[in-house]
Simulated assay, not measured.
Amino acid sequence: MADQIVQSIVDWISVVPPIGVYLIFFGIAYIENLIPPMPGDVIVAFGGYLAAEGLIGLFPVWSLTVVASVGGFMTMYWLGHRWGAQIEENRDSHFLLRFIDYKYFARGKKWMSRWGQGVIVANRFLAGTRSVISLTAGMSHLKITPTILSSLVSSVLWNTLLLAMGWVIRDNWQIIGEYLSNYGKVILALIALFVGLKAYFSYRRRKQVVKDEKE
């Protein structure tokens, strides 16, 4: 399904004028933050290939995708900020919870309270959790200016990497999708392992405390 979406977007890009190409990249980079299944990273990497072929400018597509990524992140931040209280009060019925399980919000809030802006800086590299991070940043009422700057740093680093990959790989840019898919699986597995280990050691500590109290 994702491959079909990518191919459709690529075909679309090939028949629109240059200004339309830039607008497509901007739109994809923005929407990808709102609709996680959107394969935005692969399309950004395709931009690196087009720039390497001289069909579009590297700096314009880089700038537009970075701005769009930050804009998309802050849109989700606003939704979390605006609806956060209602989500907390209506955990079984709020409309956002039809799409994202509340446990992810709860986990994201713990991350925010412990690592704060560090989570925002890392968010572009944490595949599969971006929307949750941006929403929980808003729910946690993180300060707007530092959050924008952290999101900017994250987007600059990630989009630079994607465009560089597309530039270097060129005609074989489509294999980046496979790399990103495997990368996403590894990241999710590491996150799950981290959460599991933390829960395990927390359980061990509680058990030890109970044991010490009995003694």
Score class of each variant (00 low, 15 high):
Ser14Thr: 07
His81Asp: 11
Tyr30Ile: 01
Phe59Arg: 03
Gln117Asp: 12
Phe201Ser: 09
Phe194Asn: 06
Gln208Arg: 14
Gln86Leu: 10
Ile24Lys: 08
Ile100Arg: 01
Gly128Tyr: 08
Gly84Glu: 00
His94Gly: 05
Asn159Gly: 13
Arg204Ile: 10
Ala199Leu: 15
Asp171Val: 06
Val70Met: 02
Gly71Glu: 00
Thr75Ser: 15
Phe46Arg: 02
Ile187Arg: 04
Trp158Gln: 03
Ile56Gly: 09
Leu180Trp: 01
Arg206Ser: 14
Leu96Met: 11
Met74Ala: 01
Leu96Arg: 01
Glu53Gln: 12
Lys211Ser: 10
Val153Met: 12
Ala199Met: 14
Tyr102Met: 06
Gly177Met: 06
Trp111Ala: 10
Asn172Ile: 03
Phe59Asn: 02
Leu55Phe: 07
Arg206Asp: 13
Ser154Asn: 04
Gly27Thr: 10
Ala192His: 03
Tyr102Leu: 08
Leu64Gln: 01
Val132Glu: 03
Ile31Phe: 11
Ala192Thr: 11
Phe26Tyr: 09
Lys211Leu: 14
Lys185Ile: 10
His141Met: 09
Trp78Gly: 10
Phe25Trp: 01
Ser131Ala: 15
Glu213Phe: 15
Gly57Val: 00
Leu190Lys: 02
Ile176Met: 09
Gly40Tyr: 01
Arg82Phe: 13
Thr75Gly: 05
Ala189Leu: 14
Ser134Leu: 01
Tyr102Lys: 08
Val70Arg: 02
Glu32Gln: 01
Ala52Cys: 02
Leu197Gly: 07
Leu50Phe: 02
Leu58Gly: 02
Tyr77Pro: 09
Arg206Thr: 11
Pro39Asn: 06
Gly80Met: 00
Tyr49Val: 05
Pro39Leu: 05
Ile169Met: 10
Leu163Gln: 06
Ile87Met: 13
Leu34Arg: 00
Ser154Tyr: 02
Ser140His: 10
Met38Asp: 01
Asp41Val: 04
Thr147Ser: 14
Gly20Tyr: 06
Asp3Phe: 12
Asp3Ser: 13
Gln174Glu: 14
Glu178Ser: 15
Ala192Lys: 03
Arg205Phe: 04
Glu32Ser: 08
Val210Asn: 15
Ile100His: 03
Asn33Pro: 06
Ala45Val: 09
Gly71Arg: 00
Arg130Tyr: 05
Val61His: 00
Leu162Lys: 05
Gln117Met: 13
Tyr183Asn: 00
Leu190Gly: 12
Gly54Lys: 01
Glu178Asn: 15
Glu53Tyr: 07
Gly116Lys: 05
Pro17Ala: 12
Arg205Tyr: 06
Gly116Phe: 00
Asn172Trp: 13
Leu58Thr: 03
Ala2Asn: 12
Val186Pro: 09
Val132Phe: 02
Asn90Ser: 10
Thr147Ala: 11
Gln174Arg: 15
Thr136Leu: 01
Leu126Asn: 08
Ala122Pro: 11
Gly71Val: 00
Gly84Ser: 03
Val186Glu: 05
Leu157Ile: 14
Ile9Pro: 03
Tyr30Trp: 12
Thr75Asp: 06
Gly196Asn: 08
Ala45Pro: 09
Val44Pro: 01
Lys103Ser: 10
Ile120Ala: 12
Tyr179Glu: 00
Glu88Val: 00
Ile148Ala: 03
Tyr22His: 07
Ile5Ala: 12
Pro18Arg: 10
Ile87Leu: 10
Ile144Cys: 03
